[in-house]
Design a protein around this nucleic acid. Structure first.
Lengths: 196, 196
DNA sequence: GCGAGCATGTAAGTCGTTACATGATTCT
DNA sequence: AGAATCATGTAACGACTTACATGCTCGC
């Protein structure tokens, strides 16, 4: 049950409505945790009922009214307890890798194409993360930032995202090239390996 | 619905029972797709009903009987179609990164410890993947293997797993060190940032 | 007038996790 | 005697996805 904790962690950046939270998830946390607006809208009332967050109605002119949530003391304690607890291992789910695993039973040329698209997407994300890091540093150098800044959590996780996407891009390009080379040699048509 | 495709992809390595599939998932594919035995036992009859795999009963002595599944032609076609389709973006879910994101509101020393544990785990996995790659190469050099081998899918995805775990280990160590340095300077107790 | 952005939800269905349940054999 | 391995399942619950639903404002 750890979407709750992700929500609490995001609220460390300051109060937000459900709608704003959804957007924040997309930029600052999408990297390692994803949530649809529907998930958030369903969970926020439950978190409020559990007194981990506190919501208040905000009237707006020209825009619909909204409900803005803040972390409560109980919420901060819950979060601290969560940070102290041992972590479950990473779960990656990547359809693309399933496709690569099954490359030998499919259209290798098309797959190489998909890989290049993915490489481009990873590259774009890399640049986004670099911007975010620069923005957090705000001119300071990294070492002093890491010792002195109020918050380092977001910086550390963003670095992780950057490393991931960078590595991802390199691998996708390499794999695409390998597949392309194989496609240009006319042996072994695409058939499942039949032992015996 | 892509556990089905993962199952089909794993069956490219040859026929297997549910029990054997579960183990294969753990070694060759856990890297990017996870499935519990329960998921497999629930899905295999459905896949058989859809004629994508074919099962036959195998009697054993000293062990319980089992049902062994093979990929059908329809299953291979389904898989080929899946490989050709565009891939959804990666979904990573990592509790540990949520904890790091919220590091500023928790016990930094304990978190650094958790990170070092994770680094050690990543290191172990790296070595496992290196062994698997070596085993696949079986003495051949990589470039010739990549052009000539019957199957390359598993090799490519394993390389990806290796790169991921390697990067993971480095980042975990670095982050743990950053947190340790911060822990040794006695300012700013762990409190959520309260803007106004 | 139309689409995009703001703002919040319900409902149905699928997927995944965890606990429970069984039962034989082999290894320590 | 007890634990591990082989082998397969059910049931309950929780998480996640997708589609549907509403309605206002601003810029083009």
């Amino acid at each position: 049950v750890s979407l709750r904790h992700a929500v609490l962690a995001v609220l460390l950046e300051g109060e937000a409505s459900g709608y704003e939270l959804a957007k924040r998830f997309d930029v600052s946390v999408a990297n390692f945790w994803r949530a649809t607006p529907q998930q958030l809208y369903a969970d926020l009332p439950r978190l409020e009922a559990a007194r981990l967050i506190h919501g208040r109605a905000v009237r707006q002119h020209g825009k619909p009214d909204k409900r803005v949530y803040t972390l409560t003391d109980a919420g901060a304690q819950e979060l601290a307890g969560f940070v102290a607890a041992p972590a479950k291992p990473t779960a990656i789910k990547d359809q693309l890798l399933v496709k690569v695993q099954a490359a030998d039973a499919g259209d290798v040329v098309q797959l190489a194409d998909t890989l290049r698209h993915r490489a481009a997407a990873a590259d774009e994300r890399s640049r986004l993360y670099e911007e975010l890091l620069d923005h957090m540093l705000n001119g300071r150098d990294e070492t002093s930032y890491l010792t002195d800044a109020d918050r380092i959590g977001p910086y550390l996780t963003c670095k992780r995202g950057l490393a991931f996407e960078h590595e991802n891009r390199e691998w996708c390009r390499w794999a695409a090239d390998v597949l392309s080379v194989r496609a240009s040699r006319p042996q072994t048509p695409a058939e499942p390996a039949q032992p015996e």
